[in-house]
Design a protein around this nucleic acid. Structure first.
Length: 199
DNA sequence: CGCCAGATTGACT
DNA sequence: GTCAATCTGGCGG
């Protein structure tokens, strides 16, 4: 039985949502076809108080970060698309970056989309998974709690608390002094690189 | 319209 | 390990 994660799920602290998204299924539909994967790595980003957040730069992304929860925030960087879900408490700003998934459905098509055959290389990075699932700017601001969006998140498995690792965010030039990256310890699909610096 | 930073990736030494 | 390709969005002129 499939059940989509409801909008209310995202109206909580960004950190809690980031952690609880682990083990959920990210689904992209193409007509009757499904491409999906288990979320195994996430990072929390906040509002203007976060030096690594796009909210710092103002504009549309800042508005989206502080806006309605449960919608996709698609952001382009270094010629990749990165997928976030807007999640924060009432009156605050924040979003969860989905950094890695484990392929479940539609693996053949993902291989075609990515141009690589090694399964573990398919979706073990934020830019990689958007390419594998054919996610681009057209999904920006679309609700992720409705099947009609063709991009949504379902309940899938429960991850044990002791299997969740908390660490500093990856790749940001100016991080906060607290870890905001979460990943599943046993997953082979977590992006390995660790290039964080302290501000 | 040009400039530039940046939550990345993959090719290469 | 190093490094550059190449894209988006904000901002200044």
């Amino acid at each position: 039985m499939r059940r989509i994660v409801p909008k209310e799920f995202y109206l909580r602290s960004t950190d809690v949502v980031a952690k609880e998204l682990l083990g959920k299924l990210l689904v992209r539909t193409l007509g009757s076809r499904r491409l999906s994967g288990v979320i195994v790595e996430t990072e929390a980003y906040f509002g203007v108080e976060d030096p690594a957040s796009r909210a710092r730069r103002g504009g549309d992304l800042a508005k989206t970060l502080y806006g309605e929860v449960g919608v996709a925030l698609v952001y382009g960087i270094h010629r990749q698309w990165l997928l976030n879900v807007v999640a924060h408490e009432q009156g605050k700003g924040g979003a969860v970056l989905i950094r890695a998934i484990e392929p479940v459905e539609g693996i053949e098509l993902m291989i075609k989309n990515r141009g690589v055959s090694k399964i573990t290389e398919l979706t073990n990075g934020p830019g990689k998974l958007t390419k594998a699932l054919m996610i681009d700017k057209s999904f920006h601001k679309k609700p992720m709690y409705e099947e009609s969006s063709e991009l949504f998140i379902e309940y899938y498995i429960d991850v044990n608390e002791e299997d969740i690792v908390r660490d500093y965010r990856i790749g940001v030039s100016k991080d906060l002094n607290e870890p905001h990256r979460y990943y599943v310890k046993w997953s082979k699909y977590v992006s390995k690189r660790k290039v964080y610096k302290q501000s």
